[in-house]
Design a protein around this nucleic acid. Structure first.
Lengths: 338, 338
DNA sequence: TTGTAGGCGTTATCAG
DNA sequence: CTGATAACGCCTACAA
């Protein structure tokens, strides 16, 4: 293994000089820097991570805690994880993957051992058990999602309330009056998942303001459950012409079922999805959808952690604005405005 | 920060004794061990990861290199990544997430710096650029997927050839004669992705042996492309009654389209999917499917890496046997056997 | 602008 | 069964 000392010898300088050209923490004359860099590449030197962590009191690693639960749309989790990793690299950091089956102890382990300099928590719950641990250790952390008490924390999430409101507005603008919200599985609401509740709240409030009559129906997201959900909606409110869908699994089935029941989208029924662009694009008709910037979530989380590592005091809550993109699945409703 | 030395003082023993009760590398008398463990928990001691890596020449970290490409079914990637992480924990290892945008240099970086003791490569290509780097560094590695030259490596993958053959056999057994294979996007075959080609080979050979007439059609996996693919299949071979689908995105649309065209599954057409169980279960009808054990892939990869780290010489190639589960999407074809 | 030297917290060798 | 102590490779305050 090539060490810094060998590089120094080869370049005819002292070890500290090599260290400094690497870290850039002090001025180095051009010729010296050149000789050192030459030696580094000649020898194929790579600084030893363990030694660096020990001496520098910084592992240059952040931990990313991912949920095991699968009721969140997995591709999005992956997209965020990858965005976190790439963003971290920009800061010279690597990402350690922690699965939530370790529970709060996993966080304690990596933080207390100095394995990780910071932590990004995905899928944060309202009363998240990992947060007290973080607080106790004084760890540098960022949450993706909003806990009930964000005091002194750094959280970033989609503005789901705004997303729900966008859906209501869009359908109201088009002249729909009876609208159904097809949501996630009942257990998601039962455990008060923040994203589900906030979306619903945003939707409900805006719907009320716009005079929409609404129905909220949880849905497992399989074909069969979607069929059941749709049947119930049409039975309860036959006049329903607008659908807001926050359940990735239910989208394909719903379109298929509407088609099967003779309802043409968007002439007879409008569908607004809360989903990533890719999913919106690959359905037929392509879906009008409200999308939040998943990659941006990951990037921002990393920036929050880095800011804390550097001793900064970033904002407690950052909400990212979702965007509604009109595609082919929404059209005029039965009550045209003006 | 609590150090080993402080624990030693508190327990009234020498630092080395503390180290040994932790590592278990030499016998310790019961009373001593008890005092040390007491001190550890009293002080809340956690060994410093950097120091441990430096002194022990072992970071207790393995790197997991994930692809950025999205034409592989993402939930499976995630499942494997999580399985790798959990399996690694069983060995006292953590997992560092490396995205493939760093290319081969990412692997070099973590291996050469001693950041990772071993590497797991996902989505290995036939001529994978990362393999020469691994060979050059003499790194402890395992591949998920099969490269063209597996000499001296440790690889694990699904037995896609067997999976393809299972599909052909099942449909032949049911009395189907004209069968179409709906595959991944054209570019997947163009870059000679091993899993796609091996599945096709296994399918083709068994189909030939069983006297099936087959058609292979790549498919993008969107609704529209699936519609085009199906239309073309039915035009080219109107007598087609069996479908083998190796494209997760095409499954929902295909079922919907068959229904729309008046073909009842499984009475008029049989569909065999190559996909995870969850996906097979959530379609309607529930799909007869060939599934490989994704979690097992991850677990085995970890075992291969650990074996190499411990100086073992694990098998070069491990293939995991897929299983065909009969559900509701396949039934008798037009040429009943006997 | 560059060099010297002490220390970071563990491991493991060598004594006892 | 237990204790000293010398590495491990790098960082950084202090000197020059």
């Amino acid at each position: 293994m090539v060490t810094l000392a060998e590089v120094a010898r080869q370049a005819g300088v002292s070890p500290s000089t090599v260290s400094y050209v690497l870290s850039g923490k002090r001025a180095i004359s051009e010729p010296t820097r050149a000789r050192v860099e030459q030696a580094i590449s000649d020898l194929g030197y790579h600084p030893n991570a363990g030694a660096r962590a020990l001496a520098g009191k910084r592992s240059h690693i952040i931990a990313l805690v991912v949920p095991l639960r699968t009721d969140v749309y997995v591709p999005i989790m992956m997209e965020i994880a990858i965005a976190v990793t790439m963003a971290a690299r920009q800061y010279g950091y690597d990402v350690l993957l922690i699965t939530n089956d370790e529970g709060p102890e996993g966080v304690r382990r990596v933080a207390a051992s100095g394995l990780a300099d910071g932590v990004v928590l995905m899928d944060v719950e309202l009363e998240d058990e990992r947060i007290p641990v973080l607080r106790e250790l004084g760890s540098h952390a960022a949450m993706i999602g909003l806990p009930a008490d964000a005091h002194g924390l750094a959280c970033v999430d989609h503005d789901f309330t705004a997303a729900g409101a966008l859906c209501a507005d869009h359908l109201a603008d088009l002249g729909h009056r009876d609208v159904a919200f097809v949501g996630y599985a009942p257990q998601v609401y039962r455990r008060h998942a923040g994203y589900a509740e906030r979306t619903l709240t945003g939707f409900r409030e805006r719907a009320a303001a716009r005079g929409l009559r609404i129905l909220h129906r949880p849905c497992e997201g399989t074909y069969e459950s979607t069929a059941g959900t749709l049947a119930r909606i049409l039975e309860d409110r036959p006049a329903t012409t607008g659908f807001v869908v926050q359940n990735e699994g239910a989208l394909g089935p719903l379109l298929s079922l509407l088609r099967g029941s003779g309802r043409i989208v968007p002439e007879d029924a409008s569908v607004v999805a809360l989903c990533p662009e890719q999913l919106a694009e690959q359905n037929s008709p392509r879906l009008t959808a409200v999308t939040g910037p998943a990659q941006e979530l990951g990037r921002q989380a990393v920036e929050l952690v880095m800011s804390r590592i550097d001793g900064g005091a970033p904002p407690e809550i950052t909400l990212l604005t979702p965007v509604l993109t009109v595609r082919e699945s929404t059209g005029p409703g039965p009550f045209p405005v003006r």
